[in-house]
Design a protein around this nucleic acid. Sequence first.
DNA 1: ACCTCATAGGTAGTATCACAAAGTATTGCG
DNA 2: CGCAATACTTTGTGATACTACCTATGAGGT
Lengths: 115, 115
Amino acid sequence: MLPMRPELLKGHLDALLLAVLEPGPQHGYAVIEALRTGSDGALDLPTGTIYPALHRLERAGLIASDWQTVGGRRRRAYHLTPAGQATLGEQRAVWDQFSTAVTALLTRRPWPSTA
Amino acid sequence: MLPMRPELLKGHLDALLLAVLEPGPQHGYAVIEALRTGSDGALDLPTGTIYPALHRLERAGLIASDWQTVGGRRRRAYHLTPAGQATLGEQRAVWDQFSTAVTALLTRRPWPSTA
DNA sequence: ACCTCATAGGTAGTATCACAAAGTATTGCG
DNA sequence: CGCAATACTTTGTGATACTACCTATGAGGT
């Protein structure tokens, strides 16, 4: 497994967080787990990345939170707002376009296939 | 065509530049053209992005350059070094892993398909 | 009683890097 | 002459993921 440089994720994290919250409310720690398992271990993000990102999304009005107490532990459950749901749809389209472009450029064969 | 936020490219530009140079030497201006046409117009990058990135890759030893004069204009032709070729191979693998992970997370259906 | 781990949340500071904006210089066209 | 296209360069800025560190509870082991 090659090292994944941190910058690779830049700009894509918000979309991933929204996608993880789409099926239903999750708290921060569970979001980290969901990203790790949902990416087959490729995305193992530190809390110092996730919590500030969730705060940012909440400030932006894309998600909202409620405090819960489960087994004596306080946790914050985040859920998508309508704006967050709409943004997620846009982000999926942006990702499709971006990943298509990058894949095309990276997989172009340097030798013409018929020569 | 949705707006492509600049941060999306972070960390992926180096791989794209190496890929564009793989078939043969190119100068900066031609690299910009290659990225635009090779991505169907999705990646139209300003010179202030490309030239510093090429300098960075040259400092890193992944590409090397020769000055040419064509039609009275000075241009700098870049070509891959062996290290650059090797790095390109690694970067393709990194991109595969990254894009696979992101696509998986973004396309996961919120409703279980069998329930 | 003590320790350690997993759970759960938080912040401050840093580094990276694509980009905006501005500049220099040449060729060629009207 | 003016302007577009070609070709390269540099300075400064903003966004953001990460490192490192901190607080706190519950469960399990010794």
